[in-house]
Design a binder for these strands. Structure first.
Lengths: 233, 233
DNA sequence: CGTAGCCTTGAGGACCTTCAAGAGGAGTGG
DNA sequence: CCACTCCTCTTGAAGGTCCTCAAGGCTACG
């Protein structure tokens, strides 16, 4: 259990090796910027370089702006996770708070200059980036080859693994994101997501409580609906 | 200009620092596996751990198998590039040769153990992974929020940047991949890709020579058709 | 020059989107 | 504590984009 410590301490514990020299550690501290974000508030990096973000607490979405009113949610990130925001090129990116949250950001070039020679830090960044890549590839597969029903099932299973609470075979979820966020993440419309969730409810695969509460009643069934490869066919 | 040297030498020059100790370097050499691949031949890592792949020469696609006859091309990779193949989970992955090519592969866990403490190598892997992540995110945006016409335009512009030959405003492309590969990369069918290319040809935006030759006549127009953000609106 | 396979083109149909209206939460003020 | 209101979510009907199925053309290669 971590006691409620300073944001940078939490980041250091997560990423920086304990053997790191005090001066270098201090350099990272100087570089860190703390952003308390209210619900729906967003950090826009349009003019700035690549950023490294640490989610101190709360939940966020990484959004790419494809054009006016066509946003794509690239990823969701929860407390304790580290991810990078690309510098803008064909698209501009922003980080948006799903709930009230606290972020720690670093300008990537400066961070990497400081971390030069620090294999352990590089390794941490590599692992975070590989995890992001893995999730992004799975999303690519979902968006490229799956139907609306499959995508929603994939989404629910993924969220269950990340923020679900299991009890006797059922998994309870408290989704921090709206239907709009879900639809923009899955490449669908809000209406289609709603219809698919209703269908799952009618079929007895899930239960919903209020707007954000979802209980997965039959995960094996969801697995089938997700269109994954059969394990050991 | 690199002379035609041993595959591992090319990899070392690309990834390993020149200051690296001879024993460690030798360890990487022991770990390397060389795969000459004929056209259409594929490397299947279904049973094995995460892999690091270096494309010595040729061109490859990274394919995810979503289910029988539903493959998604996750990425294309050309000579000199480094990328990782995830260990199988919900999907299984394989690397397939678009043209005759030569690959060097490393089991990722062993590679990282050897590279422990070598910040420079970690940095190289981090940069490769970030590039893959960047491309994957752009693909996600394309698959989630773009029409067939936009996706094809994005694809052509991306390929032009990677393997195009520019001469007086026009860009000549020799696509190493088939229409099927393109369609499986863009989340479309082979017919739709063909129709979109025909439309571009009719509109005078591109010219085609044979099956694989494409000349981009009007890149600004393609940019518009790609649905990117306007730069400095 | 002939053949096999890839690519192109066309017609019909499915899935998802768009447009529209109504239901239900969540928060606020009385 | 309850009613009110706003906004999100849900549900329905019509339409569009892309897919499926099918046939013909062309390229590349033997």
């Amino acid at each position: 259990m971590t006691t409620l410590s300073h944001p940078f301490e939490q980041f250091a514990e997560r990423v920086l090796p304990s053997t790191l020299g005090e001066d270098v550690r201090c350099g990272f501290h100087m570089l860190a910027r703390c952003h308390p974000l209210a619900r729906e508030a967003s950090l826009d990096f349009a003019e700035r370089s690549e950023q490294i973000v640490f989610v101190v607490r709360g939940a966020t979405k990484l959004v790419a702006h494809a054009s006016e009113s066509r946003d794509q949610v690239v990823a969701f990130h929860f407390a304790g996770e580290v991810f990078t925001v690309p510098e803008p090129d064909n698209y501009s990116y922003s980080v948006c708070a799903l709930r009230e949250c606290e972020l720690l950001t670093f300008a990537s070039p400066e961070f990497l200059r400081l971390a030069e020679g620090e294999a352990e830090i590089m390794r941490q960044l590599l692992d975070s980036t590989k995890l992001s890549l893995r999730r992004c590839r799975e999303k690519t597969i979902a968006l490229g080859r799956k139907t609306a029903g499959e995508r929603v099932a994939v989404f629910l299973l993924g969220m269950a693994r990340r923020i679900g609470v299991e009890q006797d075979g059922r998994v309870a979820l408290e989704l921090p994101m709206s239907r709009r966020d879900i639809s923009e993440s899955l490449g669908l419309t809000i209406e289609t997501v709603s219809r698919q969730l209703s269908k799952l409810k009618d079929d007895g695969v899930i239960e919903t409580t209020g707007r954000s509460g979802i209980v997965l009643l039959d995960c094996p069934d969801l697995q089938r609906r997700a269109g994954f490869l059969k394990r050991t066919a």
